[in-house]
Design a protein around this nucleic acid. Structure first.
Lengths: 104, 104
DNA sequence: CAATCATATAAGTCTGTGCTTATGTATTTG
DNA sequence: CAAATACATAAGCACAGACTTATATGATTG
């Protein structure tokens, strides 16, 4: 749940790809393996790392486990990044646009 | 310069601390070592990782090297994170407040 | 209830990372 | 110009991480 775990979890390209796929909607471990050349235990281990880091959450239903993005993890990255707001002034306009869109 | 390098660089607590110190202002490698129980080569290697990741930039003056935060790196993290904007709605209000403050 | 399915855990291997000491390379100074 | 300073690079070591196969666990199905 600390920042090292958070960034370590995201440092692996497979885990980032899994995370990105979950952004499209919750999914179980078997479906997540589609398109990855990875053993079942490897995927299970990656999911455990993402979960420990607070980036994803899981919900068991029967013998399946649904995984989904945990907003807390995203918020924590943003929180860390906000310390360095002074260093990305060029992004501010994009952000204003985004907030305007979210209001509508 | 890819995302794995970026997150790997930030996964190390020493490197995050160095990065955070540089947020207060540019500094050379010797001064950066203050407060860290770390050999000179270790610091040099950490700085190389941060530089390769695009998180810091360096400027030589004589036998010294000034290190400073590279805004591009910060922007790239934000760019990656922006894919997951939908997952941190609770932060939107804080962000609006921040933008309002930046306008003043 | 035996077989199957979805997932987790264990144990071992291989590679990568962070550290060290030793040394190299400019630059500055007395 | 020899010594000192600031930093980088090399090489080696110890540990962490990502993967594998094998096996365990718990839910479902015929």
């Amino acid at each position: 749940m600390n920042e090292s775990e958070l960034f370590k979890a995201l440092a692996d390209p497979t885990r980032r790809a899994v995370f990105e796929r979950l952004a499209d909607g919750e999914m179980n471990a078997t479906d997540l393996r589609q398109g990855f050349d990875l053993s079942q235990p490897a995927m299970s281990q990656h999911l455990a790392v993402l979960r420990t880091a607070g980036l994803i959450a899981e919900q068991k239903y029967g013998r399946n486990v649904l995984y989904r993005i945990n907003p807390d993890g995203v918020a924590r990255i943003h929180q860390w990044l906000s310390r360095y707001n002074a260093f990305w002034p060029s992004r501010v306009d994009d952000l204003k646009q985004l907030l305007k869109e979210m209001d509508q």
